[in-house]
Design a binder for these strands. Structure first.
Lengths: 226, 226
DNA sequence: CGCCCATTTGAAAATAATCAATGGAAGTGG
DNA sequence: CCACTTCCATTGATTATTTTCAAATGGGCG
């Protein structure tokens, strides 16, 4: 964890989706109504348009949400890692699809049951609102990133974000370069080039393709801004 | 209004922030606790970091929310027009600033009072959640736009969005080209060029600088996708 | 009515995308 | 268990879109 750096880097958003403190506890009450499900790599959790009957929580593995445009351009909405909730903000049906990046296990909660519980326990409802607030704050941060940041600034922000979320010096990147590109509004090649430069500058080191460590956190923070 | 076109253009998001049906009614109960305030052009409604003690609703005029980066890059988070709510998703303090684009009047609601009311009337709380869901859906749509759309696609989407929100053939654009650019992740010049091309293609017509009408809605919808 | 600022338009520069080829990892099947 | 196959990542060269820089025009506000 890099709390000091984290603050200077993005003062208003501390957590990825579903990671607020106090939340996990009050939502732990839900675990009784959940069923564990397993997904293989690239296995779909749900498809766009499916009736939104469930909430999910990732136990192990990683999930991505995505939308595909008519011409094949793909937008990755979010990466969900262990502990993250999926589908809280769906209305009638899911507006996007979700699929496992690697073999994963999740808990599936019935929306109806959760809402029934929430009716009795206002704390649960408040927690949901709080999650949504944090999602909105994260969304705003990402709009800033997508609208106004250079390729390198985006990659640096992304790595710092992941490092905060997994709270570990060693960041796991189960997704492909294409996934990252579609998440950051860049091409796979641009992502790859940025990683190469970070490596050659000694700011990150790579251990295999899907794991990096941040060697110079300060330098990475510098890269997130001019 | 262009309901048919609207559906084909963005199936999952019908409304700008704060415009969901059923909402205005249940939140009308709030009007008792509101105070009317007036702002002059460029007058600040609140600044980033201010304690978030109030919600606001725009009665007349237009407001923009923005963040400014260290080097002066400015990001416009949202344009709020008559009927839109501001500040519902703030946590402790506002993460961004808000200022009037033109002379405007708003209602200011005490957050404490609203929350007290909500505690008694679950409907109000549900409405707030619903607004936040629609904000999130809009945010997702905008991330797609910022991450994966060309300049012309962004402008076309923006104009269609505004036309839906004001429900009128004649769209009012009180904001400057720079505002639009900072909202769409483009420069003022690129925005201006796109408008010029739309005019020369006969897709829009301009009446003064701050009002346009969409002459060929179908052509505009075509431009939002490849 | 005139000044000032936003807008428009043009030309040059830069960032990232696209096209293309090579290298390497992972997964499959014998 | 190894070889084969396929997909992913890397790197290079070129192209394109958008930004940047700069100048001129025009509207709107005092």
């Amino acid at each position: 964890m890099l709390p000091a750096l984290a603050v200077s880097y993005r003062p208003t958003v501390q957590h990825g989706p579903g990671k607020r403190a106090g939340l996990t506890e009050s939502l732990a009450a839900l675990d009784g109504v959940g069923a564990v499900i397993a997904l293989r790599r690239d296995g779909p959790l749900f498809r766009p348009g499916d009736r939104a009957e469930f909430y999910f929580k990732v136990l192990k593995g990683a999930v991505r949400s995505c939308q595909v445009l008519a011409d094949g351009r793909r937008h990755v909405g979010e990466f969900f890692m262990a502990g993250d909730f999926i589908g809280l903000d769906a209305v009638e049906s899911y507006a996007f699809g979700a699929e496992a990046i690697i073999d994963s296990t999740l808990i599936r909660y019935s929306r109806r049951k959760v809402e029934a519980l929430a009716a009795g326990q206002p704390r649960i409802g408040q927690s949901l609102v709080e999650i949504m607030r944090s999602h909105l704050a994260a969304a705003r941060q990402r709009m800033l990133l997508l609208g106004h940041m250079t390729a390198m600034e985006r990659i640096a922000s992304f790595l710092l974000d992941l490092s905060q979320r997994c709270g570990d010096g060693r960041i796991s990147l189960p997704m492909t370069r294409t996934d990252i590109g579609d998440y950051l509004g860049l091409t796979m090649e641009t992502v790859s080039r940025a990683f190469s430069q970070l490596k050659s500058d000694g700011i990150i080191t790579q251990h295999g393709l899907h794991e990096v460590t941040i060697a110079k956190p300060g330098a990475l923070v510098e890269l997130t801004r001019p």
